[in-house]
């Protein structure tokens, strides 16, 4: 009996402990600063890394070849990109430190908790105080791995950009595996024509860029080398 009671007591204690732990783990946060701190915390352990990024651009009136480049990152916010020409990269999500830039001079509000939306993410609104164009940014934080999964940047009457980030776990860190940048621009790139006999130095006409257009920039990440040491000279 005593033994049975003992087992029951242990079971209750374990259940309570488990409940407390589960309760602690799934505790809904309400402070965006804490949430973002959780995103940044694991990254503190990454002193540096380098990664090969393949950039594909699919934007109307802009054609360019897929570009392979090597991205170097070093704490706290040093970035260096090596490429044999020209490339376009998203302003957010590429490296951990970019989130810091987002948080400068912003008013943060928690828009939605994981329980309140279908995506199961913390959704935080950032109101940029110094941006002249009333730019707003909304970010989606994955509470399971504390990663930035989605960013929506909106500059009224100009452009709306949605950045989605997929992650892979590499050496214990959640690092980007693929980023898609969905561009929704109110003004497109004009359909400028190549030089011709009518316009010998190139025609800047074509569609005047008034109609909204959409485009996608895709970045695929591979060949990560984390905390292997990078000569800081390359960031100079």
């Amino acid at each position: 009996m005593n033994q049975k009671l003992l087992h029951l007591s242990l079971l209750i204690i374990m259940a309570l402990l488990l409940g407390v732990m589960t309760s602690l783990e799934s505790q809904t946060l309400s402070d965006p600063v804490i949430i973002l701190g959780k995103v940044q915390a694991p990254m503190e352990a990454i002193a540096d890394y380098s990664v090969t990024v393949t950039v594909s651009v699919a934007v109307p009136n802009l054609r360019m070849p897929d570009k392979e480049l090597r991205l170097f990152y070093q704490q706290p916010d040093k970035i260096h990109v090596e490429t044999d020409g020209f490339a376009m990269l998203p302003k957010v999500g590429l490296v951990p430190s970019q989130i810091n830039q987002l948080l400068e001079n912003v008013k943060m509000t928690l828009k939605s908790t994981p329980e309140q939306n279908e995506s199961g993410a913390y959704i935080i609104n950032l109101q940029h105080l110094e941006a002249p164009s009333k730019m707003t940014t909304t970010i989606w934080i994955n509470p399971k791995r504390w990663t930035l999964d989605k960013v929506l940047m909106n500059v009224p009457d100009i452009a709306e950009t949605v950045i989605t980030i997929q992650y892979q776990k590499f050496e214990g860190f959640w690092l980007p595996e693929a980023i898609k940048v969905y561009l929704n621009m109110q003004q497109s790139i004009p359909a400028m024509q190549r030089p011709s006999i009518e316009y010998p130095v190139g025609y800047f006409g074509g569609s005047s860029g008034k109609e909204p257009v959409s485009g996608i920039i895709t970045l695929d990440f591979g060949d990560y080398r984390v905390n292997q040491g990078i000569d800081s000279k390359i960031f100079e």
Partner: peptide, 28 residues
């Protein structure tokens, strides 16, 4: 001038102003 429409969303790495571009314009 040409990429102004994308400037709010993306950052440009490297430059498109190079010897080939000047050569292209010099074909005029």
């Amino acid at each position: 001038q040409a990429l102004r429409a994308l400037g709010d969303s993306v950052m440009f790495v490297g430059t498109l102003v190079n010897g080939l571009l000047v050569s292209y314009y010099l074909m005029n």
